[in-house]
Design a protein around this nucleic acid. Structure first.
Lengths: 275, 275
DNA sequence: AATTTATTGTCTAACTCTTAGACAATAAAG
DNA sequence: CTTTATTGTCTAAGAGTTAGACAATAAATT
Protein backbone atom coordinates (compact mmCIF):
# COMPACT_ATOMS: atom_id res chain seq x y z
CA UNK A 1 0.00 0.00 0.00
CA UNK A 2 2.80 2.42 0.81
CA UNK A 3 5.14 0.88 -1.72
CA UNK A 4 7.09 3.45 -3.66
CA UNK A 5 9.86 3.37 -6.21
CA UNK A 6 11.72 6.50 -5.20
CA UNK A 7 13.55 7.41 -2.03
CA UNK A 8 13.01 10.99 -1.00
CA UNK A 9 16.02 13.28 -1.11
CA UNK A 10 15.71 14.37 2.50
CA UNK A 11 15.82 10.81 3.72
CA UNK A 12 18.60 9.91 1.36
CA UNK A 13 20.76 12.73 2.66
CA UNK A 14 20.01 12.03 6.29
CA UNK A 15 22.83 9.59 6.74
CA UNK A 16 21.17 8.33 9.84
CA UNK A 17 17.58 8.91 10.74
CA UNK A 18 16.44 7.17 13.83
CA UNK A 19 13.10 5.61 14.68
CA UNK A 20 10.73 5.20 11.79
CA UNK A 21 13.39 5.37 9.19
CA UNK A 22 15.92 3.07 7.67
CA UNK A 23 19.57 3.74 8.12
CA UNK A 24 20.46 5.19 4.75
CA UNK A 25 23.34 6.74 2.89
CA UNK A 26 24.10 8.26 -0.49
CA UNK A 27 24.39 4.88 -2.16
CA UNK A 28 20.83 3.88 -1.44
CA UNK A 29 18.26 3.82 -4.16
CA UNK A 30 15.17 1.72 -4.31
CA UNK A 31 16.12 0.78 -7.87
CA UNK A 32 19.27 -0.85 -6.63
CA UNK A 33 18.11 -3.58 -4.35
CA UNK A 34 21.52 -5.09 -3.99
CA UNK A 35 22.92 -1.81 -2.73
CA UNK A 36 19.87 -1.35 -0.58
CA UNK A 37 20.32 -4.63 1.11
CA UNK A 38 24.01 -4.02 1.52
CA UNK A 39 23.22 -0.74 3.21
CA UNK A 40 20.75 -2.34 5.54
CA UNK A 41 23.60 -4.58 6.63
CA UNK A 42 25.76 -1.56 7.43
CA UNK A 43 23.95 -1.43 10.75
CA UNK A 44 23.26 -4.06 13.35
CA UNK A 45 19.68 -5.13 12.93
CA UNK A 46 17.05 -5.06 15.64
CA UNK A 47 19.37 -3.24 18.00
CA UNK A 48 19.07 0.46 18.71
CA UNK A 49 20.29 3.10 21.11
CA UNK A 50 17.94 5.46 22.94
CA UNK A 51 19.30 8.51 24.70
CA UNK A 52 18.00 10.39 27.70
CA UNK A 53 19.71 13.78 27.42
CA UNK A 54 19.60 15.71 30.68
CA UNK A 55 20.07 19.45 30.92
CA UNK A 56 19.54 21.86 33.80
CA UNK A 57 17.75 25.17 33.54
CA UNK A 58 15.73 27.43 35.80
CA UNK A 59 16.14 25.15 38.79
CA UNK A 60 14.68 22.23 36.89
CA UNK A 61 16.06 19.07 35.40
CA UNK A 62 15.15 18.95 31.70
CA UNK A 63 15.14 16.24 29.06
CA UNK A 64 15.66 16.89 25.35
CA UNK A 65 12.83 15.28 23.41
CA UNK A 66 12.00 15.50 19.70
CA UNK A 67 8.42 15.50 18.53
CA UNK A 68 7.86 13.60 15.32
CA UNK A 69 6.50 15.30 12.26
CA UNK A 70 3.41 13.14 12.01
CA UNK A 71 -0.22 13.69 12.83
CA UNK A 72 -1.11 12.23 16.18
CA UNK A 73 1.43 13.65 18.69
CA UNK A 74 4.30 11.19 18.76
CA UNK A 75 7.27 11.94 20.99
CA UNK A 76 10.29 9.65 21.03
CA UNK A 77 13.70 9.79 22.66
CA UNK A 78 16.60 10.66 20.37
CA UNK A 79 17.79 7.34 19.03
CA UNK A 80 19.73 5.63 16.31
CA UNK A 81 21.42 2.47 15.15
CA UNK A 82 24.88 1.01 15.51
CA UNK A 83 27.20 0.86 12.53
CA UNK A 84 28.96 -2.39 11.78
CA UNK A 85 32.34 -0.82 12.48
CA UNK A 86 31.18 1.33 15.34
CA UNK A 87 31.34 0.67 19.09
CA UNK A 88 28.10 1.14 20.99
CA UNK A 89 29.61 4.03 22.96
CA UNK A 90 30.78 5.62 19.74
CA UNK A 91 27.31 5.25 18.27
CA UNK A 92 25.72 6.89 21.31
CA UNK A 93 28.22 9.72 21.10
CA UNK A 94 27.45 10.23 17.42
CA UNK A 95 23.70 10.30 18.03
CA UNK A 96 24.19 12.82 20.80
CA UNK A 97 26.40 15.05 18.73
CA UNK A 98 23.86 14.99 15.93
CA UNK A 99 21.17 16.23 18.29
CA UNK A 100 23.11 18.62 20.52
CA UNK A 101 26.16 19.71 18.52
CA UNK A 102 28.27 18.91 21.56
CA UNK A 103 31.18 16.51 21.34
CA UNK A 104 32.54 15.89 24.79
CA UNK A 105 29.68 15.09 27.06
CA UNK A 106 29.13 12.82 29.96
CA UNK A 107 27.63 9.58 28.79
CA UNK A 108 26.63 6.46 30.68
CA UNK A 109 24.95 3.26 29.66
CA UNK A 110 22.19 2.56 32.14
CA UNK A 111 20.05 -0.35 30.95
CA UNK A 112 19.01 -2.57 28.08
CA UNK A 113 15.35 -2.82 27.21
CA UNK A 114 14.48 -6.00 25.42
CA UNK A 115 11.12 -7.44 26.41
CA UNK A 116 9.51 -9.56 23.74
CA UNK A 117 6.37 -7.43 23.89
CA UNK A 118 8.49 -4.33 23.40
CA UNK A 119 7.16 -3.59 19.96
CA UNK A 120 6.26 -0.63 17.87
CA UNK A 121 3.21 -2.46 16.60
CA UNK A 122 0.35 -0.54 18.23
CA UNK A 123 2.03 2.83 18.01
CA UNK A 124 3.00 2.19 14.43
CA UNK A 125 -0.49 1.09 13.51
CA UNK A 126 -1.89 4.34 14.77
CA UNK A 127 0.88 6.33 13.16
CA UNK A 128 0.43 4.63 9.82
CA UNK A 129 -3.32 4.94 9.82
CA UNK A 130 -3.00 8.65 10.52
CA UNK A 131 -0.07 9.34 8.22
CA UNK A 132 -0.19 7.02 5.24
CA UNK A 133 0.24 9.88 2.80
CA UNK A 134 3.26 11.35 4.56
CA UNK A 135 4.97 8.00 4.70
CA UNK A 136 4.63 7.60 0.95
CA UNK A 137 5.87 11.16 0.44
CA UNK A 138 8.99 10.36 2.41
CA UNK A 139 9.75 7.28 0.42
CA UNK A 140 9.14 4.72 3.10
CA UNK A 141 8.24 1.64 1.15
CA UNK A 142 6.94 -1.59 2.57
CA UNK A 143 10.42 -3.01 2.90
CA UNK A 144 11.49 -0.03 4.99
CA UNK A 145 8.41 -0.42 7.15
CA UNK A 146 9.20 -4.06 7.63
CA UNK A 147 12.67 -3.14 8.85
CA UNK A 148 11.28 -0.73 11.36
CA UNK A 149 8.39 -2.74 12.65
CA UNK A 150 10.53 -5.69 13.67
CA UNK A 151 11.11 -6.19 17.32
CA UNK A 152 13.99 -4.08 18.69
CA UNK A 153 16.30 -4.38 21.64
CA UNK A 154 17.45 -0.98 22.79
CA UNK A 155 20.46 0.10 24.81
CA UNK A 156 19.69 3.07 27.04
CA UNK A 157 22.28 5.81 27.50
CA UNK A 158 21.89 8.96 29.49
CA UNK A 159 23.90 12.10 28.85
CA UNK A 160 24.54 15.19 30.95
CA UNK A 161 25.04 18.45 29.08
CA UNK A 162 25.48 22.13 29.79
CA UNK A 163 22.15 23.28 28.45
CA UNK A 164 23.60 26.65 27.41
CA UNK A 165 26.04 25.05 25.02
CA UNK A 166 23.46 22.91 23.27
CA UNK A 167 21.85 23.92 20.01
CA UNK A 168 19.07 21.33 19.67
CA UNK A 169 18.89 19.98 16.13
CA UNK A 170 15.86 18.51 14.47
CA UNK A 171 16.35 15.67 12.10
CA UNK A 172 14.27 14.96 9.01
CA UNK A 173 11.35 13.35 10.73
CA UNK A 174 11.10 15.81 13.63
CA UNK A 175 8.49 18.47 13.90
CA UNK A 176 10.39 19.98 16.82
CA UNK A 177 13.02 19.17 19.39
CA UNK A 178 12.70 20.77 22.80
CA UNK A 179 13.70 20.71 26.43
CA UNK A 180 10.96 19.52 28.74
CA UNK A 181 11.15 19.76 32.53
CA UNK A 182 11.27 16.19 33.73
CA UNK A 183 8.13 16.83 35.77
CA UNK A 184 6.25 17.81 32.63
CA UNK A 185 7.34 15.25 30.08
CA UNK A 186 4.85 14.37 27.38
CA UNK A 187 3.79 10.76 26.97
CA UNK A 188 6.48 9.14 24.87
CA UNK A 189 6.13 6.16 22.55
CA UNK A 190 6.71 2.60 23.66
CA UNK A 191 8.61 2.31 26.95
CA UNK A 192 10.46 5.60 26.63
CA UNK A 193 8.90 7.14 29.74
CA UNK A 194 10.06 4.12 31.69
CA UNK A 195 13.52 4.64 30.24
CA UNK A 196 13.62 8.22 31.50
CA UNK A 197 12.61 7.03 34.96
CA UNK A 198 15.34 4.40 34.97
CA UNK A 199 17.89 6.93 33.71
CA UNK A 200 16.98 9.33 36.51
CA UNK A 201 17.31 6.56 39.06
CA UNK A 202 20.80 5.75 37.77
CA UNK A 203 21.78 9.41 37.69
CA UNK A 204 20.83 9.72 41.35
CA UNK A 205 22.89 6.69 42.28
CA UNK A 206 25.94 7.98 40.43
CA UNK A 207 25.71 11.64 41.31
CA UNK A 208 27.73 11.63 44.51
CA UNK A 209 29.89 8.71 43.67
CA UNK A 210 31.17 9.95 40.34
CA UNK A 211 30.75 13.72 40.78
CA UNK A 212 29.01 13.74 37.44
CA UNK A 213 26.56 16.45 38.38
CA UNK A 214 29.09 19.09 37.46
CA UNK A 215 28.53 18.26 33.81
CA UNK A 216 25.14 19.91 34.03
CA UNK A 217 26.48 23.28 35.16
CA UNK A 218 28.42 26.01 33.39
CA UNK A 219 32.12 26.23 34.21
CA UNK A 220 31.67 28.49 37.20
CA UNK A 221 28.79 28.43 39.62
CA UNK A 222 27.86 29.36 43.16
CA UNK A 223 27.31 26.88 45.95
CA UNK A 224 23.65 27.74 45.93
CA UNK A 225 23.37 26.90 42.25
CA UNK A 226 24.99 23.53 42.84
CA UNK A 227 22.63 22.91 45.73
CA UNK A 228 19.61 23.77 43.62
CA UNK A 229 20.85 21.33 41.00
CA UNK A 230 21.00 18.57 43.59
CA UNK A 231 17.54 19.51 44.78
CA UNK A 232 16.20 19.36 41.26
CA UNK A 233 17.71 15.95 40.62
CA UNK A 234 16.65 14.39 43.90
CA UNK A 235 13.42 16.33 44.14
CA UNK A 236 14.02 17.08 47.80
CA UNK A 237 15.57 19.91 49.81
CA UNK A 238 19.11 19.80 51.20
CA UNK A 239 20.06 21.76 54.34
CA UNK A 240 22.28 24.62 53.23
CA UNK A 241 24.96 24.45 55.92
CA UNK A 242 25.62 20.75 55.68
CA UNK A 243 25.39 20.64 51.91
CA UNK A 244 28.17 23.20 51.68
CA UNK A 245 30.32 21.25 54.13
CA UNK A 246 29.74 17.97 52.35
CA UNK A 247 30.67 19.38 48.97
CA UNK A 248 33.72 21.28 50.19
CA UNK A 249 34.92 18.16 52.01
CA UNK A 250 35.05 16.38 48.66
CA UNK A 251 38.00 18.63 47.79
CA UNK A 252 37.07 18.83 44.16
CA UNK A 253 36.09 22.48 43.98
CA UNK A 254 38.32 25.47 43.42
CA UNK A 255 37.11 28.71 44.97
CA UNK A 256 37.34 31.75 42.74
CA UNK A 257 36.57 35.43 43.42
CA UNK A 258 33.27 36.61 44.76
CA UNK A 259 30.37 37.11 42.46
CA UNK A 260 28.84 40.61 42.45
CA UNK A 261 25.18 39.86 42.17
CA UNK A 262 23.86 43.34 42.90
CA UNK A 263 21.67 41.81 45.57
CA UNK A 264 21.34 43.38 48.98
CA UNK A 265 23.43 40.78 50.74
CA UNK A 266 26.81 39.14 51.02
CA UNK A 267 28.11 38.14 47.59
CA UNK A 268 28.64 34.39 47.11
CA UNK A 269 31.90 32.88 45.94
CA UNK A 270 32.15 31.36 42.51
CA UNK A 271 33.45 27.80 42.32
CA UNK A 272 34.95 25.75 39.56
CA UNK A 273 35.22 22.00 39.30
CA UNK A 274 38.87 20.95 39.43
CA UNK A 275 39.17 19.00 36.18
CA UNK B 1 37.51 -24.88 2.55
CA UNK B 2 35.22 -25.93 5.37
CA UNK B 3 32.17 -25.98 3.13
CA UNK B 4 29.98 -28.99 3.72
CA UNK B 5 26.61 -30.16 2.50
CA UNK B 6 25.33 -31.88 5.62
CA UNK B 7 24.51 -30.61 9.03
CA UNK B 8 25.63 -32.90 11.83
CA UNK B 9 22.94 -34.53 13.90
CA UNK B 10 24.37 -33.35 17.19
CA UNK B 11 24.29 -29.76 16.09
CA UNK B 12 20.90 -30.14 14.51
CA UNK B 13 19.45 -31.43 17.75
CA UNK B 14 21.09 -28.86 19.90
CA UNK B 15 18.27 -26.39 19.59
CA UNK B 16 20.56 -23.69 20.80
CA UNK B 17 24.29 -23.97 20.84
CA UNK B 18 26.05 -20.83 21.81
CA UNK B 19 29.29 -19.42 20.55
CA UNK B 20 30.72 -21.06 17.50
CA UNK B 21 27.47 -22.46 16.33
CA UNK B 22 24.41 -21.27 14.54
CA UNK B 23 21.12 -21.17 16.31
CA UNK B 24 19.51 -24.25 14.83
CA UNK B 25 16.39 -26.34 15.09
CA UNK B 26 14.90 -29.47 13.58
CA UNK B 27 13.86 -27.69 10.42
CA UNK B 28 17.37 -26.78 9.39
CA UNK B 29 19.09 -28.56 6.59
CA UNK B 30 21.83 -27.23 4.44
CA UNK B 31 19.90 -28.46 1.41
CA UNK B 32 17.04 -26.12 2.21
CA UNK B 33 18.46 -22.67 2.03
CA UNK B 34 15.16 -20.96 2.38
CA UNK B 35 14.46 -22.73 5.64
CA UNK B 36 18.00 -22.16 6.71
CA UNK B 37 17.70 -18.47 6.26
CA UNK B 38 14.32 -18.45 7.95
CA UNK B 39 15.83 -20.20 10.93
CA UNK B 40 18.69 -17.76 11.09
CA UNK B 41 16.05 -15.09 11.39
CA UNK B 42 14.49 -16.85 14.38
CA UNK B 43 17.14 -15.15 16.48
CA UNK B 44 18.26 -11.56 16.67
CA UNK B 45 21.47 -11.29 14.74
CA UNK B 46 24.75 -9.98 16.08
CA UNK B 47 23.35 -9.81 19.59
CA UNK B 48 24.20 -12.37 22.24
CA UNK B 49 23.94 -12.96 25.96
CA UNK B 50 26.92 -13.94 28.09
CA UNK B 51 26.40 -15.23 31.61
CA UNK B 52 28.65 -15.07 34.63
CA UNK B 53 27.29 -17.80 36.91
CA UNK B 54 28.49 -17.41 40.48
CA UNK B 55 28.47 -20.18 43.02
CA UNK B 56 30.02 -20.46 46.47
CA UNK B 57 31.98 -23.43 47.75
CA UNK B 58 34.76 -24.08 50.25
CA UNK B 59 34.97 -20.43 51.26
CA UNK B 60 35.55 -19.34 47.68
CA UNK B 61 33.49 -17.60 45.06
CA UNK B 62 33.34 -19.78 41.95
CA UNK B 63 32.34 -19.21 38.34
CA UNK B 64 30.88 -21.88 36.07
CA UNK B 65 32.90 -22.02 32.85
CA UNK B 66 32.69 -24.46 29.96
CA UNK B 67 35.79 -25.48 28.08
CA UNK B 68 35.25 -25.92 24.38
CA UNK B 69 35.85 -29.23 22.69
CA UNK B 70 38.53 -27.92 20.35
CA UNK B 71 42.27 -28.20 20.29
CA UNK B 72 43.92 -25.11 21.72
CA UNK B 73 42.34 -24.53 25.15
CA UNK B 74 39.36 -22.27 24.55
CA UNK B 75 37.21 -21.27 27.52
CA UNK B 76 34.11 -19.14 27.00
CA UNK B 77 31.32 -17.99 29.29
CA UNK B 78 27.98 -19.77 28.86
CA UNK B 79 26.17 -17.81 26.21
CA UNK B 80 23.39 -17.85 23.69
CA UNK B 81 21.15 -15.88 21.40
CA UNK B 82 17.80 -14.17 21.75
CA UNK B 83 14.75 -15.61 20.07
CA UNK B 84 12.55 -13.29 18.05
CA UNK B 85 9.66 -13.81 20.44
CA UNK B 86 11.76 -13.94 23.56
CA UNK B 87 12.58 -11.18 26.04
CA UNK B 88 16.25 -10.73 26.85
CA UNK B 89 15.62 -11.72 30.49
CA UNK B 90 13.76 -14.81 29.32
CA UNK B 91 16.64 -15.71 27.03
CA UNK B 92 19.16 -15.35 29.85
CA UNK B 93 16.98 -17.53 32.07
CA UNK B 94 16.75 -20.18 29.38
CA UNK B 95 20.52 -20.24 28.84
CA UNK B 96 21.07 -20.56 32.58
CA UNK B 97 18.60 -23.38 32.95
CA UNK B 98 20.26 -25.23 30.09
CA UNK B 99 23.59 -25.08 31.86
CA UNK B 100 22.60 -25.47 35.51
CA UNK B 101 19.23 -27.23 35.49
CA UNK B 102 17.99 -24.59 37.89
CA UNK B 103 14.91 -22.54 37.12
CA UNK B 104 14.52 -19.88 39.72
CA UNK B 105 17.81 -18.16 40.17
CA UNK B 106 18.90 -14.66 40.87
CA UNK B 107 19.68 -12.90 37.64
CA UNK B 108 20.84 -9.37 36.94
CA UNK B 109 21.85 -7.58 33.79
CA UNK B 110 25.11 -5.78 34.49
CA UNK B 111 26.56 -4.36 31.30
CA UNK B 112 26.54 -4.38 27.52
CA UNK B 113 29.78 -5.04 25.70
CA UNK B 114 29.83 -3.61 22.22
CA UNK B 115 33.19 -2.21 21.19
CA UNK B 116 33.78 -2.26 17.45
CA UNK B 117 37.04 -4.16 18.00
CA UNK B 118 35.17 -6.72 20.05
CA UNK B 119 35.56 -9.44 17.50
CA UNK B 120 36.10 -13.15 17.38
CA UNK B 121 38.52 -12.71 14.50
CA UNK B 122 41.88 -13.54 16.09
CA UNK B 123 40.51 -16.22 18.38
CA UNK B 124 38.55 -17.74 15.54
CA UNK B 125 41.54 -17.73 13.24
CA UNK B 126 43.54 -19.70 15.75
CA UNK B 127 40.62 -22.00 16.48
CA UNK B 128 39.98 -22.68 12.80
CA UNK B 129 43.61 -23.27 11.97
CA UNK B 130 43.85 -25.79 14.80
CA UNK B 131 40.47 -27.44 14.28
CA UNK B 132 39.55 -27.33 10.62
CA UNK B 133 38.72 -31.03 10.55
CA UNK B 134 36.46 -30.88 13.59
CA UNK B 135 34.55 -27.96 12.18
CA UNK B 136 33.83 -29.88 9.00
CA UNK B 137 32.84 -32.91 11.05
CA UNK B 138 30.33 -30.83 12.93
CA UNK B 139 28.78 -29.45 9.82
CA UNK B 140 29.85 -25.87 10.20
CA UNK B 141 29.92 -24.66 6.64
CA UNK B 142 31.21 -21.33 5.45
CA UNK B 143 27.82 -19.70 5.81
CA UNK B 144 27.63 -20.76 9.44
CA UNK B 145 31.13 -19.45 10.02
CA UNK B 146 30.16 -16.18 8.45
CA UNK B 147 27.25 -15.90 10.85
CA UNK B 148 29.49 -16.46 13.83
CA UNK B 149 32.43 -14.35 12.78
CA UNK B 150 30.37 -11.22 12.40
CA UNK B 151 30.78 -8.61 15.05
CA UNK B 152 28.61 -9.23 18.11
CA UNK B 153 27.20 -7.01 20.81
CA UNK B 154 26.73 -8.94 24.03
CA UNK B 155 24.52 -8.33 27.02
CA UNK B 156 26.14 -9.44 30.25
CA UNK B 157 24.06 -11.13 32.95
CA UNK B 158 25.29 -12.52 36.20
CA UNK B 159 23.51 -15.22 38.15
CA UNK B 160 23.78 -16.39 41.75
CA UNK B 161 23.09 -20.05 42.41
CA UNK B 162 23.25 -22.54 45.24
CA UNK B 163 26.16 -24.57 44.00
CA UNK B 164 24.83 -27.74 45.61
CA UNK B 165 21.67 -27.65 43.54
CA UNK B 166 23.44 -27.23 40.23
CA UNK B 167 24.17 -30.11 37.91
CA UNK B 168 26.49 -28.50 35.35
CA UNK B 169 25.55 -29.54 31.84
CA UNK B 170 27.86 -29.63 28.86
CA UNK B 171 26.44 -28.73 25.53
CA UNK B 172 27.50 -30.18 22.18
CA UNK B 173 30.61 -28.14 21.73
CA UNK B 174 31.89 -28.40 25.30
CA UNK B 175 34.73 -30.61 26.36
CA UNK B 176 33.88 -29.91 29.99
CA UNK B 177 31.99 -27.48 32.19
CA UNK B 178 33.38 -26.77 35.62
CA UNK B 179 33.42 -24.47 38.60
CA UNK B 180 36.57 -22.38 38.88
CA UNK B 181 37.46 -20.32 41.93
CA UNK B 182 37.33 -16.72 40.76
CA UNK B 183 40.94 -16.30 41.80
CA UNK B 184 41.98 -19.13 39.49
CA UNK B 185 39.98 -18.49 36.35
CA UNK B 186 41.54 -19.64 33.09
CA UNK B 187 42.07 -17.08 30.35
CA UNK B 188 38.76 -16.79 28.54
CA UNK B 189 38.16 -15.83 24.93
CA UNK B 190 37.57 -12.26 23.84
CA UNK B 191 36.65 -9.91 26.66
CA UNK B 192 35.09 -12.57 28.88
CA UNK B 193 37.59 -12.09 31.71
CA UNK B 194 36.73 -8.41 31.70
CA UNK B 195 33.07 -9.37 31.90
CA UNK B 196 33.67 -11.47 34.99
CA UNK B 197 35.47 -8.55 36.62
CA UNK B 198 32.61 -6.20 35.84
CA UNK B 199 30.08 -8.74 37.09
CA UNK B 200 31.95 -9.08 40.38
CA UNK B 201 32.07 -5.31 40.74
CA UNK B 202 28.30 -5.11 40.25
CA UNK B 203 27.71 -8.00 42.65
CA UNK B 204 29.67 -6.17 45.35
CA UNK B 205 27.66 -3.00 44.82
CA UNK B 206 24.36 -4.84 45.04
CA UNK B 207 25.18 -7.29 47.80
CA UNK B 208 24.15 -5.19 50.79
CA UNK B 209 21.55 -3.17 49.01
CA UNK B 210 19.55 -6.05 47.57
CA UNK B 211 20.44 -8.84 50.02
CA UNK B 212 21.19 -11.00 47.04
CA UNK B 213 24.07 -12.81 48.67
CA UNK B 214 21.64 -15.24 50.25
CA UNK B 215 21.08 -16.79 46.85
CA UNK B 216 24.55 -18.29 47.04
CA UNK B 217 23.92 -20.20 50.27
CA UNK B 218 21.87 -23.27 51.09
CA UNK B 219 18.57 -22.63 52.85
CA UNK B 220 20.04 -22.68 56.34
CA UNK B 221 23.46 -21.44 57.32
CA UNK B 222 25.40 -20.17 60.28
CA UNK B 223 26.45 -16.58 60.80
CA UNK B 224 30.04 -17.59 60.28
CA UNK B 225 29.22 -19.13 56.92
CA UNK B 226 27.50 -15.95 55.83
CA UNK B 227 30.48 -13.94 56.99
CA UNK B 228 32.86 -16.15 55.05
CA UNK B 229 30.72 -15.65 51.97
CA UNK B 230 31.01 -11.89 52.35
CA UNK B 231 34.74 -12.22 52.84
CA UNK B 232 35.05 -14.34 49.71
CA UNK B 233 33.08 -11.85 47.62
CA UNK B 234 34.84 -8.73 48.89
CA UNK B 235 38.19 -10.44 49.33
CA UNK B 236 38.69 -8.80 52.72
CA UNK B 237 38.03 -9.72 56.35
CA UNK B 238 35.02 -8.48 58.32
CA UNK B 239 35.14 -8.12 62.10
CA UNK B 240 33.01 -10.86 63.59
CA UNK B 241 31.15 -8.91 66.27
CA UNK B 242 30.10 -6.03 64.06
CA UNK B 243 29.29 -8.21 61.08
CA UNK B 244 26.80 -10.14 63.18
CA UNK B 245 25.23 -6.95 64.47
CA UNK B 246 24.99 -5.42 61.01
CA UNK B 247 23.32 -8.50 59.53
CA UNK B 248 20.91 -9.01 62.43
CA UNK B 249 19.95 -5.33 62.28
CA UNK B 250 18.76 -5.87 58.72
CA UNK B 251 15.92 -7.94 60.21
CA UNK B 252 15.83 -10.36 57.33
CA UNK B 253 17.07 -13.47 59.11
CA UNK B 254 15.08 -15.97 61.06
CA UNK B 255 16.97 -17.77 63.82
CA UNK B 256 16.45 -21.51 64.00
CA UNK B 257 17.70 -24.12 66.47
CA UNK B 258 21.35 -24.55 67.28
CA UNK B 259 23.57 -26.58 65.05
CA UNK B 260 25.38 -29.54 66.64
CA UNK B 261 28.74 -29.39 65.02
CA UNK B 262 30.53 -31.84 67.26
CA UNK B 263 33.21 -29.22 67.80
CA UNK B 264 34.54 -28.48 71.25
CA UNK B 265 32.79 -25.16 71.60
CA UNK B 266 29.47 -23.41 71.72
CA UNK B 267 27.22 -24.53 68.90
CA UNK B 268 26.24 -21.78 66.46
CA UNK B 269 22.65 -20.97 65.58
CA UNK B 270 21.32 -21.79 62.18
CA UNK B 271 19.67 -18.94 60.28
CA UNK B 272 17.28 -18.82 57.39
CA UNK B 273 16.61 -15.94 55.04
CA UNK B 274 13.04 -14.70 55.48
CA UNK B 275 11.70 -15.02 51.97
C1' DA C 1 33.06 -34.05 88.12
C1' DA C 2 35.80 -30.06 87.72
C1' DT C 3 38.83 -27.67 84.52
C1' DT C 4 40.41 -26.27 80.08
C1' DT C 5 39.84 -24.87 75.25
C1' DA C 6 37.84 -22.91 71.28
C1' DT C 7 34.23 -20.55 69.41
C1' DT C 8 29.72 -18.04 69.56
C1' DG C 9 26.73 -14.28 70.98
C1' DT C 10 26.35 -9.86 73.05
C1' DC C 11 27.46 -5.64 75.35
C1' DT C 12 29.64 -1.11 75.75
C1' DA C 13 32.97 2.63 75.45
C1' DA C 14 35.42 5.24 72.03
C1' DC C 15 35.34 7.19 67.87
C1' DT C 16 33.45 9.10 63.55
C1' DC C 17 30.08 11.01 60.77
C1' DT C 18 25.67 13.47 60.19
C1' DT C 19 22.21 16.78 61.50
C1' DA C 20 20.36 21.01 63.43
C1' DG C 21 20.80 25.25 65.35
C1' DA C 22 23.33 29.49 65.96
C1' DC C 23 26.01 33.44 64.67
C1' DA C 24 29.35 36.46 62.38
C1' DA C 25 30.30 38.58 57.69
C1' DT C 26 28.76 41.45 54.07
C1' DA C 27 26.49 44.02 50.03
C1' DA C 28 22.96 46.89 49.16
C1' DA C 29 18.65 49.33 50.58
C1' DG C 30 16.30 52.32 53.76
C1' DC D 1 24.08 54.46 60.48
C1' DT D 2 20.69 50.95 60.70
C1' DT D 3 18.13 47.36 58.55
C1' DT D 4 17.58 43.35 55.53
C1' DA D 5 18.67 39.24 53.15
C1' DT D 6 21.91 35.92 52.18
C1' DT D 7 26.47 33.59 52.62
C1' DG D 8 30.04 31.14 55.12
C1' DT D 9 31.33 28.80 59.21
C1' DC D 10 31.23 26.91 63.75
C1' DT D 11 29.61 23.72 67.34
C1' DA D 12 26.64 20.82 70.17
C1' DA D 13 23.57 16.97 69.84
C1' DG D 14 22.44 12.81 67.83
C1' DA D 15 23.21 8.68 65.11
C1' DG D 16 26.01 5.23 63.43
C1' DT D 17 30.47 2.55 63.29
C1' DT D 18 34.52 0.29 65.27
C1' DA D 19 37.23 -2.10 68.70
C1' DG D 20 37.74 -4.31 72.82
C1' DA D 21 35.87 -7.09 76.45
C1' DC D 22 33.29 -10.76 78.53
C1' DA D 23 29.74 -14.26 79.40
C1' DA D 24 27.79 -18.66 77.36
C1' DT D 25 28.58 -23.23 75.90
C1' DA D 26 29.90 -27.88 73.73
C1' DA D 27 33.32 -30.99 73.89
C1' DA D 28 38.04 -32.43 75.36
C1' DT D 29 41.15 -32.92 79.18
C1' DT D 30 42.43 -33.77 83.82
Amino acid sequence: MYETVHTSKSIREAGMVSWLSLPTDQSVTAENHYMYSRNEQDYIQQLSIDCVIFGYREKQLNVLVPKMDFRGDFWALPSGYIGQDEGIGQAARRILEERTGIQTIYLDQFCVFGDAERSNAQVLERLISLNGDKLVERGLNSKALEWITRRFVSIGYYALVDINKVIPRKNEIDESIEWYPITQLPTLIMDHNEMVAKALETLRLNLDQKLIGFNLLPETFTMKELQELYEAIFDKPFPRNNFQKKILDLNVLERLEKKFTGAANKAPYLYRFQQ
